[in-house]
Nucleic acid binder design. Structure first.
Lengths: 242, 242
DNA sequence: AGTCGCATGGTACATTGTACGAGTCAATTG
DNA sequence: CAATTGACTCGTACAATGTACCATGCGACT
């Protein structure tokens, strides 16, 4: 009767979370050589990693279940044992890219500024390394790794002396700033690569947009500098201590 | 020989822009009653307006060319005379939603703060009214209406006394803040509507995320207040004058 | 041996975007 | 008047996609 898949499907091994090994019924085939299986066995990790590769290489529309299966050397439908549906692949890929490994030294006394800036810049860099993550991030719910970063942010700010009543504003302000900066940045990358559509505006910005033109807003490519300046400014406003 | 469509297609009437009426070869059929055409004639305006309706009603995946044509009472392929492709519809719909009609009074002497806050809040409100605009915004190039807002922002800041060398940082900081705040907000709306996927995290935030839990970060629904506080803070830091 | 649960994947189908080309009708030109 | 043109409409067809359904294989346990 080939037991209902809906049951099996809802029981995913571990969606990027780890669990304290509740004896999952004996380890499955970790024998010597792979017996006569054509390739390595499929796994959630392999699927997610390959999905990220594909997304990096071909963008958000470049990820199709067929292509993904091809790269994995498996049949298309095999993926569906490990994953609910395509949206699930997106969620997993997104979260996997947003993982934070922590700041290197963090012998923190007064280093909270450094730690916060490090985490936020690492986050921004991660998103820019995988530009497809930005639109995904704004259309899906927040995954565990995002929450972890929020938690770290809150904890650090709190340790730095931000009062509880100001904490939420502080967290969200920093958070929003980074999100926005990253989006803006990727928008510009897009605009550059597809000049055809926007040349009408970028070509004659002086006519309709004199101020933008004068400040060279659209051509200022010191993104990192601008990002840091705004961030410092925010931090200065948020945190009392010098 | 039914002239090549590629020629006709590139000649769109006016893509939300206006042009000084270069005599487009005599006005086409603005006769009395519609002769025996089944419905009103198709037009770019109607297409865009209906697309926005559809997007509002069914979300980003709810917009299909067939459904759009159905709502317009036309054949699917008729759309393609007015629009390049589906992405074109997205671009047009997005830009149409982001138009700014200006602040009401603006008898500005010291009112520059009011004007900026008004424009930014209007922008935020517009995006929240059409949540599909957020992911679109972060995956497409900036349209004319966005540039107009940037221009207005820059001009107002400049008039308020922000030095040219600080202008870019000021513009981008405000911009990024609003973008980020809006994204965050829509993420939460998503998370609320699809508790199933995230309940594991939202249900037990205290275990893994004690600080978030303590500050009730995820349950603080005074979005407007938090938004305003952060914005005021930014403005205070950016503009010297009190 | 048989049974069960994990895991793979082939086939099939509905839905999508859109290329192609034929059709309609009004204005223009002969 | 007839012929032409060019703006506009739309039916058909096709390729690409997500995924439901089902058959199969394999290792472990009884």
């Amino acid at each position: 009767m080939t037991a209902k898949r809906s049951g099996a499907r809802s029981k995913r091994p571990r969606p990027t979370e780890f669990q304290p090994a509740p004896e999952p019924r004996g380890e499955p085939h970790l024998s010597l050589e792979r017996p006569l299986s054509l390739e390595r066995p499929l796994s959630l990790e392999r699927i997610v990693a390959t999905a990220v590769e594909l997304l990096d290489a071909r963008g958000i529309d470049g990820l199709t279940m067929r292509r993904l299966a091809d790269r994995l050397g498996s049949g298309v439908m095999s993926l569906y044992w490990h994953v609910d549906d395509k949206d699930g692949v997106f969620d997993l890929a997104l979260d996997s890219v947003l993982e934070y490994r922590g700041s290197p030294q963090m012998n923190g006394a007064e280093d909270w500024r450094v730690e916060i800036v490090h985490m936020l810049e690492d986050w921004r860099a991660g998103m820019l390394r995988h530009p497809w993550s930005v639109p995904l991030l704004s259309s899906r719910a927040l995954g565990p790794n995002i929450l972890s970063r929020l938690e770290l942010l809150g904890r650090t700010l709190s340790r730095a002396g931000v009062a509880d009543k100001d904490l939420n504003v502080a967290i969200w302000s920093l958070w929003n700033y980074v999100m926005g900066a990253t989006i803006t940045r990727t928008s510009f990358d897009l605009a550059d690569s597809d000049k055809a559509a926007t040349q009408q505006h970028h070509a004659h910005p002086g006519e309709r947009y004199p101020t933008i033109q004068r400040s060279r807003l659209l051509f200022d490519d010191d993104w990192v500098g601008t990002f840091r300046k705004g961030l410092d400014l925010l931090l200065a406003g948020l945190a009392p201590g010098r």
